[in-house]
Protein backbone atom coordinates (compact mmCIF):
# COMPACT_ATOMS: atom_id res chain seq x y z
CA UNK A 1 0.00 0.00 0.00
CA UNK A 2 1.44 3.37 -0.94
CA UNK A 3 1.84 6.08 1.70
CA UNK A 4 -0.96 8.14 0.19
CA UNK A 5 -3.38 5.22 0.01
CA UNK A 6 -2.48 4.18 3.54
CA UNK A 7 -2.97 7.69 4.90
CA UNK A 8 -6.28 8.12 3.15
CA UNK A 9 -7.59 4.73 4.32
CA UNK A 10 -6.59 5.52 7.92
CA UNK A 11 -8.09 9.00 7.57
CA UNK A 12 -11.34 7.58 6.24
CA UNK A 13 -11.59 5.16 9.16
CA UNK A 14 -10.78 7.86 11.72
CA UNK A 15 -13.29 10.23 10.15
CA UNK A 16 -15.91 7.53 10.20
CA UNK A 17 -15.23 6.65 13.86
CA UNK A 18 -15.10 10.29 14.97
CA UNK A 19 -18.10 11.23 12.82
CA UNK A 20 -20.36 8.69 14.49
CA UNK A 21 -19.03 9.35 17.99
CA UNK A 22 -21.57 9.21 20.79
CA UNK A 23 -20.89 9.94 24.46
CA UNK A 24 -20.33 6.76 26.46
CA UNK A 25 -20.86 6.14 30.13
CA UNK A 26 -17.59 5.06 31.68
CA UNK A 27 -17.73 1.52 33.02
CA UNK A 28 -17.33 1.17 36.78
CA UNK A 29 -14.17 -0.57 37.97
CA UNK A 30 -13.84 -4.35 37.56
CA UNK A 31 -13.90 -5.00 41.31
CA UNK A 32 -17.13 -3.04 41.67
CA UNK A 33 -18.77 -4.94 38.81
CA UNK A 34 -17.56 -8.26 40.23
CA UNK A 35 -19.16 -7.38 43.54
CA UNK A 36 -22.36 -6.44 41.71
CA UNK A 37 -22.45 -9.88 40.12
CA UNK A 38 -21.72 -11.53 43.48
CA UNK A 39 -24.62 -9.57 44.93
CA UNK A 40 -26.84 -10.97 42.16
CA UNK A 41 -25.68 -14.50 43.03
CA UNK A 42 -26.36 -13.86 46.71
CA UNK A 43 -29.82 -12.56 45.73
CA UNK A 44 -30.48 -15.80 43.89
CA UNK A 45 -29.34 -17.74 46.96
CA UNK A 46 -31.65 -15.74 49.20
CA UNK A 47 -34.54 -16.37 46.81
CA UNK A 48 -33.88 -20.11 47.05
CA UNK A 49 -33.42 -20.10 50.82
CA UNK A 50 -37.09 -20.77 51.73
CA UNK A 51 -36.74 -24.18 50.06
CA UNK A 52 -33.66 -25.17 52.07
CA UNK A 53 -33.57 -27.34 55.18
CA UNK A 54 -31.80 -24.87 57.45
CA UNK A 55 -31.61 -27.25 60.41
CA UNK A 56 -29.78 -29.84 58.30
CA UNK A 57 -27.54 -27.08 56.95
CA UNK A 58 -26.64 -26.02 60.49
CA UNK A 59 -25.67 -29.60 61.37
CA UNK A 60 -23.59 -30.01 58.21
CA UNK A 61 -21.81 -26.73 58.76
CA UNK A 62 -20.67 -28.01 62.11
CA UNK A 63 -18.44 -30.46 60.20
CA UNK A 64 -15.14 -28.76 59.39
CA UNK A 65 -14.48 -30.14 55.90
CA UNK A 66 -18.02 -29.38 54.70
CA UNK A 67 -17.70 -25.88 56.09
CA UNK A 68 -14.33 -25.41 54.41
CA UNK A 69 -15.62 -26.81 51.12
CA UNK A 70 -18.50 -24.31 51.18
CA UNK A 71 -16.12 -21.50 52.08
CA UNK A 72 -13.75 -22.58 49.29
CA UNK A 73 -16.59 -22.52 46.75
CA UNK A 74 -17.63 -19.02 47.83
CA UNK A 75 -14.04 -17.72 47.71
CA UNK A 76 -13.48 -19.34 44.30
CA UNK A 77 -16.67 -17.78 42.93
CA UNK A 78 -15.67 -14.30 44.15
CA UNK A 79 -12.02 -14.59 43.04
CA UNK A 80 -12.93 -15.97 39.61
CA UNK A 81 -15.50 -13.20 39.13
CA UNK A 82 -12.93 -10.54 40.03
CA UNK A 83 -10.41 -12.18 37.67
CA UNK A 84 -12.96 -12.36 34.84
CA UNK A 85 -13.85 -8.68 35.18
CA UNK A 86 -10.20 -7.64 35.49
CA UNK A 87 -9.20 -9.54 32.35
CA UNK A 88 -12.10 -7.97 30.48
CA UNK A 89 -10.50 -4.52 30.74
CA UNK A 90 -7.52 -3.73 28.47
CA UNK A 91 -4.32 -2.83 30.28
CA UNK A 92 -4.97 -4.81 33.44
CA UNK A 93 -2.31 -7.33 34.42
CA UNK A 94 -2.91 -10.80 33.02
CA UNK A 95 -1.74 -12.19 36.38
CA UNK A 96 -5.27 -11.50 37.60
CA UNK A 97 -6.21 -14.76 35.87
CA UNK A 98 -4.22 -16.62 38.55
CA UNK A 99 -6.27 -15.16 41.39
CA UNK A 100 -8.80 -18.02 41.68
CA UNK A 101 -6.14 -20.75 41.73
CA UNK A 102 -5.51 -20.68 45.48
CA UNK A 103 -9.20 -20.65 46.54
CA UNK A 104 -9.96 -23.34 43.94
CA UNK A 105 -7.21 -25.53 45.38
CA UNK A 106 -8.64 -24.94 48.86
CA UNK A 107 -12.13 -25.82 47.60
CA UNK A 108 -10.98 -29.03 45.88
CA UNK A 109 -8.87 -30.01 48.89
CA UNK A 110 -11.70 -29.54 51.37
CA UNK A 111 -14.13 -31.45 49.14
CA UNK A 112 -11.61 -34.28 48.82
CA UNK A 113 -11.25 -34.37 52.58
CA UNK A 114 -15.02 -34.95 52.73
CA UNK A 115 -14.61 -38.09 50.62
CA UNK A 116 -11.85 -39.41 52.87
CA UNK A 117 -14.06 -38.87 55.90
CA UNK A 118 -16.83 -40.75 54.17
CA UNK A 119 -14.52 -43.75 53.74
CA UNK A 120 -13.02 -43.53 57.21
CA UNK A 121 -16.11 -42.89 59.33
CA UNK A 122 -18.61 -45.75 59.53
CA UNK A 123 -22.29 -44.84 59.29
CA UNK A 124 -21.85 -41.89 56.92
CA UNK A 125 -24.76 -41.21 54.64
CA UNK A 126 -23.55 -41.51 51.03
CA UNK A 127 -25.71 -40.28 48.21
CA UNK A 128 -27.66 -42.56 45.91
CA UNK A 129 -27.80 -42.03 42.16
CA UNK A 130 -31.13 -40.24 42.39
CA UNK A 131 -29.77 -37.65 44.82
CA UNK A 132 -26.58 -37.23 42.80
CA UNK A 133 -28.61 -36.66 39.64
CA UNK A 134 -30.59 -33.99 41.50
CA UNK A 135 -27.36 -32.27 42.49
CA UNK A 136 -26.10 -32.28 38.90
CA UNK A 137 -29.40 -30.84 37.67
CA UNK A 138 -29.23 -28.16 40.38
CA UNK A 139 -25.66 -27.23 39.49
CA UNK A 140 -26.49 -26.95 35.79
CA UNK A 141 -29.74 -25.08 36.36
CA UNK A 142 -28.10 -22.51 38.63
CA UNK A 143 -24.88 -22.20 36.60
CA UNK A 144 -26.72 -21.34 33.41
CA UNK A 145 -28.44 -18.10 34.53
CA UNK A 146 -25.38 -17.04 36.54
CA UNK A 147 -23.17 -17.60 33.45
CA UNK A 148 -25.55 -15.69 31.22
CA UNK A 149 -25.65 -12.71 33.57
CA UNK A 150 -21.86 -12.77 33.90
CA UNK A 151 -21.25 -12.96 30.14
CA UNK A 152 -23.78 -10.19 29.56
CA UNK A 153 -21.93 -7.98 32.06
CA UNK A 154 -18.55 -8.87 30.57
CA UNK A 155 -19.72 -8.04 27.05
CA UNK A 156 -19.98 -4.39 28.07
CA UNK A 157 -16.20 -4.34 28.53
CA UNK A 158 -13.68 -5.43 25.90
CA UNK A 159 -12.04 -8.75 26.77
CA UNK A 160 -8.88 -9.03 24.70
CA UNK A 161 -8.64 -12.74 25.56
CA UNK A 162 -12.30 -13.71 25.31
CA UNK A 163 -11.80 -17.42 25.89
CA UNK A 164 -9.79 -16.90 29.05
CA UNK A 165 -12.28 -14.38 30.40
CA UNK A 166 -15.20 -16.67 29.56
CA UNK A 167 -13.51 -19.67 31.18
CA UNK A 168 -12.97 -17.62 34.36
CA UNK A 169 -16.62 -16.63 34.18
CA UNK A 170 -17.53 -20.32 33.91
CA UNK A 171 -15.41 -21.16 36.96
CA UNK A 172 -17.06 -18.37 38.89
CA UNK A 173 -20.58 -19.45 37.92
CA UNK A 174 -19.88 -23.11 38.65
CA UNK A 175 -18.32 -22.30 42.02
CA UNK A 176 -21.24 -20.04 42.91
CA UNK A 177 -23.67 -22.80 41.93
CA UNK A 178 -21.72 -25.26 44.12
CA UNK A 179 -21.88 -22.79 47.01
CA UNK A 180 -25.62 -22.35 46.50
CA UNK A 181 -26.02 -26.14 46.44
CA UNK A 182 -24.71 -26.48 49.99
CA UNK A 183 -28.04 -25.70 51.72
CA UNK A 184 -29.78 -28.24 49.46
CA UNK A 185 -27.18 -31.00 49.64
CA UNK A 186 -28.85 -33.61 51.85
CA UNK A 187 -25.94 -36.07 52.08
CA UNK A 188 -22.19 -36.29 52.65
CA UNK A 189 -19.80 -36.05 49.78
CA UNK A 190 -18.52 -39.26 48.19
CA UNK A 191 -15.88 -39.81 45.56
CA UNK A 192 -18.57 -40.35 42.92
CA UNK A 193 -20.39 -37.25 44.08
CA UNK A 194 -17.22 -35.19 43.98
CA UNK A 195 -16.27 -36.55 40.57
CA UNK A 196 -19.70 -35.65 39.21
CA UNK A 197 -19.45 -32.18 40.71
CA UNK A 198 -16.03 -31.75 39.17
CA UNK A 199 -17.40 -32.97 35.85
CA UNK A 200 -20.25 -30.47 35.95
CA UNK A 201 -17.91 -27.66 36.96
CA UNK A 202 -15.58 -28.61 34.09
CA UNK A 203 -18.54 -28.76 31.74
CA UNK A 204 -19.72 -25.30 32.77
CA UNK A 205 -16.21 -23.85 32.40
CA UNK A 206 -15.74 -25.51 29.01
CA UNK A 207 -19.15 -24.41 27.74
CA UNK A 208 -18.46 -20.86 28.88
CA UNK A 209 -15.02 -20.92 27.33
CA UNK A 210 -16.44 -21.96 23.95
CA UNK A 211 -19.82 -20.26 23.77
CA UNK A 212 -18.96 -17.35 26.06
CA UNK A 213 -15.70 -16.74 24.22
CA UNK A 214 -17.61 -16.37 20.96
CA UNK A 215 -20.20 -14.14 22.57
CA UNK A 216 -17.54 -11.92 24.07
CA UNK A 217 -15.62 -11.76 20.80
CA UNK A 218 -18.71 -10.75 18.89
CA UNK A 219 -19.72 -8.12 21.40
Amino acid sequence: MSDTARTSSHDRLMDSLAGGLRPVRRLPGPAFRALAWCAAAVGLGLALMPFADLEALRIRMAVADLRYAALGAVLTAVAAAVAAFQTSVPGRASAWALLPLAPAAFWIGASGAGCLRDWAVPGADPADMHQTGGCVAFLLAVSLPLSLVLVWMLRRACPLRPNLTAALAGLSAAAAAAALLVPFHPHDATATDLALHALVVGLVIGANGLAGGRLLRRG
Binding site: V24, R26, L27, V89, P90, R156, C158
Partner: peptide
Protein backbone atom coordinates in the same frame (compact mmCIF):
# COMPACT_ATOMS: atom_id res chain seq x y z
CA UNK B 1 -13.56 2.71 19.52
CA UNK B 2 -15.31 -0.33 20.94
CA UNK B 3 -13.39 -0.30 24.23
CA UNK B 4 -13.43 3.43 24.89
CA UNK B 5 -15.91 3.06 27.76
CA UNK B 6 -13.44 0.80 29.60
CA UNK B 7 -10.73 3.45 29.78
CA UNK B 8 -10.36 5.03 33.20
Amino acid sequence: HRARATYD
